[in-house]
Nucleic acid binder design. Structure first.
Lengths: 206, 206
DNA sequence: GTCTATATGCTGATAGAC
DNA sequence: GTCTATCAGCATATAGAC
C-alpha cells in the first residue's frame, strides 16, 4: 500500500486486503474508500461496480496461483526431486501470500457463477490441460518402473494440495484459538513443510 | 425441512441451509423468511437478531463436529485399527453433512470474534483438552514400541484432518468446474476414503 | 480526477393490530 | 403466534460541480 501509487492502484490494493480479510459480501465500497482516504464515488469512478473491482482482483490472484502450479512441473529430474521441489514451491508461494487459499475458496464455494466463469476462462486453457496430461504421463512412467505406488495421479495431486493448503487455511484458527504468536505460526509452517514432504514421499513408496 | 415442524424450527432449518450455502453476510433475514413462507418479522420474533439465530446454528454444528472427533478415540484396539476407524468415522460424518467444513471455516476465518468465542467455550473444555492428552500418550507409546514413525502427535492429527476435510471443502469446485455429476462426486469421496486411509497408514510407518 | 449531493433500494429491527 | 407497517441506517450507483 505505497502512498506514492495512483489512486486507482491504491483502491485496488486496499480492496484486495479487505476482500481477503472479510470476504466480498462483508466488504463495502464505502469501507474501501474510507481506508484509502478518498470518497466512495471515486471507487466507482475507476471500477464502475463493486463486482467488477472484485473480479479484477480475483482473477489476478487465481492466475498467480495457477502459475505456481504450472511452473512446478519440470521433467528433467527424478520424480522424488520433483515432489520435493513442488511442495517447497507451493509452501513458499503461500507463505508470501498466506490468505490466498481462504479468499479463493470462500468466494468460489459461495458463488456458483464464479465457478462457471473460472471453468470457462481457466480450466479449459491448454496450459492447464497440458499440465495435467504431462503430470499423468510422468506418474504412469514412474509406476511402470516400480518406483511409485499405484495411486491415481489425481489422488497424488489432491493429497499434495490438501496438505499444503490446509495449514494456511487454518492459520487464523491456529493463531487465535490455540493462542499462538505470529512467530510460532511461522515456525509451525516451516515445520509443516518438512513434515508434509516426508509424509508424501513415504506415502508414495511402492 | 419438514412442513409439520413448528415455525421456530423451520426458520432455523432454512436459515441453516442458507448460511451453509451463502455465508452469514450474504444471507438476509428477509430471504430466510421468504423461503420459509412467513414474514421477516417472525424471524426476529423467535430469534431477536440475525446474529443470535446464526450463533445457535453455528454452535450446534461445531458441537456436533467436535463430538465426532471426541468419539473417535478408543484405546482398546491397535493403533492401526484406531486410525482406520477414525478416518472412516470422519468421512461418514462429513458425507452426512458435507457443507459443514466450508461453513465453519469461512465464518471462523472472516470473523475474529467467533474465534475468540469458540476459544472460550470449546477449546478450553476438559473434554477436548483430555482428548488431545490421551491421543498424545497413545502416540508416544506406539513410538516407543517402534510401531509408529517419530512424528509429532499434532502433525498426525493435522494430516488426517486435512486429508479428510479437503475433498468436502472443494466438492463444489470439483463438481462444477470439472463438470462432475453428483454420483461421480459421491464415488470419488468413497474412493478418497480408501486412498486417504492407505496413505496415512503408509506415511506413518516407522 | 476528485468532490458533493442524491436517488433508489435493501437491511435489521421494532411497534402495534389481530 | 403471526401479520402489516414503519423506522433508521447503510448499501451501490450515478449526476453534476469544480
Amino acid at each position: 500500500m505505497n502512498t506514492n501509487d495512483t489512486m486507482e492502484v491504491r483502491i485496488r490494493e486496499v480492496a484486495q486486503e479487505l476482500f481477503f480479510r472479510q470476504g466480498y459480501a462483508a466488504t463495502s465500497t464505502t469501507q474501501i474508500a474510507h481506508e484509502v482516504g478518498c470518497t466512495q464515488a471515486l471507487v466507482h469512478y475507476y471500477y464502475r461496480t463493486k463486482e467488477n473491482l472484485f473480479r479484477q482482483i480475483f482473477l489476478e490472484q487465481i492466475e498467480a496461483g495457477l502459475n505456481v502450479i504450472g511452473r512446478s512441473l519440470c521433467d528433467n529430474e527424478s520424480f522424488e526431486d520433483f515432489l520435493r521441489h513442488a511442495i517447497s514451491m507451493y509452501f513458499d508461494a503461500l507463505t508470501a501470500n498466506p490468505r490466498l487459499p481462504d479468499f479463493v475458496m470462500e468466494e468460489l464455494v459461495t458463488n456458483p457463477e464464479r465457478r462457471e466463469y473460472l471453468r470457462e476462462h481457466f480450466v479449459k486453457r491448454p496450459t492447464y490441460v497440458l499440465f495435467y496430461v504431462q503430470f499423468e504421463s510422468i506418474v504412469r512412467r514412474e509406476q511402470e518402473a516400480g518406483r511409485l505406488a499405484r495411486v491415481e495421479p489425481f489422488d497424488i495431486l489432491m493429497t499434495i494440495v490438501a496438505l499444503t493448503v490446509f495449514p494456511f487455511l487454518t492459520m487464523p484458527m491456529f493463531r487465535d484459538m490455540l493462542g499462538k504468536t505470529d512467530k510460532q505460526v511461522e515456525e509451525f509452517i516451516a515445520h509443516r513443510k518438512q513434515e508434509v514432504t516426508r509424509f508424501v514421499l513415504q506415502g508414495l513408496k511402492p
